[in-house]
Amino acid sequence: MADPVLIGENMTGGYGNGPDILHDCTIAVEKGQIAVIVGPNGAGKSTAMKAVFGMLNLRQGSVRLGGDDITALTPQARVRKGMGFVPQTSNIFPSMTVEENLEMGAFIRDDDIGSTMEQVYTLFPILRDKRRQAAGELSGGQRQQVAVGRALMTQPTVLMLDEPTAGVSPIVMDELFDRIIEIARTGISILMVEQNARQALGIADKGYVMVQGENRYTDTGEALLADPEVRKSFLGG
C-alpha cells in the first residue's frame, strides 16, 4: 500500500530533554480525508500533532510527507513543504486587518495570491465583509475562520488544526465543521485534534483515540462511534 499523504510513524519523544510523552504513536492522513485525534485530557493529543509538525524532539520514529522523510525539518521548513498549521491559541495577528492576516499567511509565496484569497473569502463569506477590520476585534468563531484562512493561504496539502472549536458555541462549531469538510473536498488532507469527540468523529474518515501518549483505538470515524468500548470510555455512553 502506498504511503499516506502525511504519516508520523512510531513516534516516541517529548519536549526538549524532558521525559517521553509519546510512546510509539502513529498518526496518518490520506489525501482529501479528515483524520481526527481524540482522547481524554492530558492524553497527548496536541503533543502528537506537534510532533508531526516538528515542534518536538523525536527520539524514535519518523514523519513523512508525500513519501519524503521530513523528520529533521523545522516547523518553518515544513510549512514550505506544504503543511499548514493552526495553533489552538494566539493563532491570528490581532492588530492587523483580516486581509493583512491572510497576506501574512501567504508570506512565503512570491506568486499572485489573489485567487487563493478569493477561495478563502468564498469559503468564509463573513471574512470578505470584515476584511478591513482588525482581526482582534472579531468574535471567537470569526477569529477561528481567520486563523484557518491564514493557514490555507500557503495552499497546503495538509491542514493541521489544534482544537479549532475550543471555546466557540455549538452552532459556530457545526458551521466550522461544515467548512472543514468543504476544505477536505478540495483535496486538502485534514489532521485535527478535538475535544468534542462525538461530533468530530462524526465527520472523520479516520479516528485516533489516544490514551497516555499511545494509540488505543484506530479505525474509521464511523466504526469508532459504533464501538461500544469507545462509547463507554470516551464518549460518555
Binding site: 495553533p87 495577528f93 490581532p94 492588530s95 493583512e100
Partner: peptide, 18 residues
C-alpha cells in the same frame, strides 16, 4: 506588514515564514 505581524504574534510570524 511583516514587522507588524512580528510585533503582534512572534510565533505565528515564524510559522508564516517571516
Amino acid at each position: 506588514k511583516s514587522m507588524r505581524a512580528y510585533s503582534d504574534n512572534e510565533d505565528l510570524a515564524l510559522l508564516s515564514g517571516i
